[in-house]
Write a protein that binds this DNA or RNA. Structure first.
Lengths: 255, 255
DNA sequence: AAGTGGTCTAGACCACTAG
DNA sequence: TAGTGGTCTAGACCACTTC
């Protein structure tokens, strides 16, 4: 932002690592600093190659890795774009609850609490911030097929999201990660999740409309941006009576 | 197998899809038919490119995709190898239970049942076999840190694993997927898992040494090989009192 | 027609492994 | 030293999008 694109596009300095990694680093720098906004096109491959002083093939190799990591998307005839967190495709990249049959479940979100509080020590550690720094806490109840199914407790460092109010959070017409991206330039690129089975507590049971002691799936998620910097903690309790958590590993290897 | 490598390596026929996809298809054919065994090296890139009648760059592009899908591994100076399912790296690719702290958990396996039975209709459908075809059923109890933690019920089509006996299953000194691969040439490349929270039944509770009604994580896994052909069903119940199911999405995007 | 990404080639040179 | 994969280049031509 403060840095003009000129610096991002200058010729490469000497280095002992491969040129395409150097180029990749510059592209990441540009994207993470917002020089190219989500949804925007990068300069063409020819231009970028010329600017960096490398062959087009080398530039393409760098872009290839970022496309594989879903940071960029190519559109033939149009250009190469910074991935945007709206639309259904990316939403389901991070949303893993599906109907028992396998069909996609579209959640309806209701915000039931919004507050600012100091972080607990473990939260501060997990988010890589100073102990007892301010957090924004959001509690969402997600319904699937008209019934409450997921209770989300979200915690984000207030520092990273200046001016974020309950009103803005409510007015959001897209995914939460799209809000992070469009308003604060924070791209959620990865998640790290730990799952376990628990029994519904007295606090949680009525919200999910299950009996206390009913089995729930508990998910502790850390959302990460560039360089694995944590940006969000999320504790989900899922009523898996009618839905499953769906995880696939690998892609179809077809001829 | 029956087909000599000669056919696999012949020049490419005319086609409307890209050359590198054509090459990729040939390589998959060769690997899935066992022309190149797991752990073995393929012919060098130069040789392969000459055999297919394409440039080395094109051959490399095809190999790149298979390396990304973990079907092949490159070793500089040595060659390109068919991925082998032994070793710890691949084991943890499909084993997602970790210690609460995050450390890797090495399971100790005890086979507690082995039998042949006809498939239930849903099983046959999930495995893509004829209804009431024969299955091999294996029940394993996995212990972590000396305590029972996971109960696995495995079902595989007997047809696919001729001559597989309880003795062979017991004698296995490596992972189950390594057994499939080394003895039957079946490469597990993908898994599809559905998770939910359940309460321990009277049948399962004593095996896992938990009280009936204790929360358990239930995992229904389908293991797939080339062309998404299903080869194994696995129902796991995990005591998540001391362990978590760990799932990460995406890789670190670092400069 | 002009501009974008996608495919493919041919060849130079480097880095690593093994005998 | 010979053989392997890894990097990088320069350029031709194709396919798609937009005007």
């Amino acid at each position: 932002m403060a840095t003009p694109a000129r610096r991002l596009l200058g010729a490469l300095a000497a280095s002992d690592r491969p040129l395409y990694e150097e180029v990749r680093g510059r592209l990441i720098e540009g994207i993470s600093q917002g020089a190219w906004q989500p949804g925007e096109a990068l300069p063409s491959e020819g231009e970028l190659a010329r600017a960096f002083g490398v062959a087009v093939g080398t530039l393409r190799k760098a872009v290839d890795t970022l496309v594989a990591e879903q940071v960029l998307v190519r559109r033939q005839g149009k250009g190469t774009f910074v991935t945007s967190h709206d639309g259904r495709r990316l939403m389901f990249h991070f949303f893993h609850i599906v109907e028992r049959g396998g069909g996609k479940a579209y959640p309806e979100v209701r915000l039931i609490d919004f507050r600012r509080e100091r972080a607990m020590p473990e939260e501060a550690a997990a988010l890589g911030i100073a102990p007892s720094e301010k957090l924004i806490r959001v509690r969402n109840l997600l319904s699937l097929g008209g019934r409450p199914a997921i209770l989300d407790d979200i915690a984000i460092p207030a520092q990273l999201f200046p001016g974020l109010t309950e009103k803005i959070f409510r007015a959001r017409d897209n995914t939460i990660y799209h809000l992070y991206q469009s308003r604060y330039g924070i791209n959620v690129l990865r998640t790290d999740e730990r799952l376990r089975a628990v029994l519904a507590s007295r606090e949680v049971a009525p919200l999910l409309q299950v009996a206390p002691g009913a089995p729930l799936l508990e998910i502790r998620r850390v959302a990460l941006t560039f360089r694995d910097r944590p940006v969000e903690l999320r504790l989900s309790r899922v009523d898996t009576a009618r839905h499953d958590y769906h995880n696939t590993l690998g892609k179809d290897v077809a001829a």
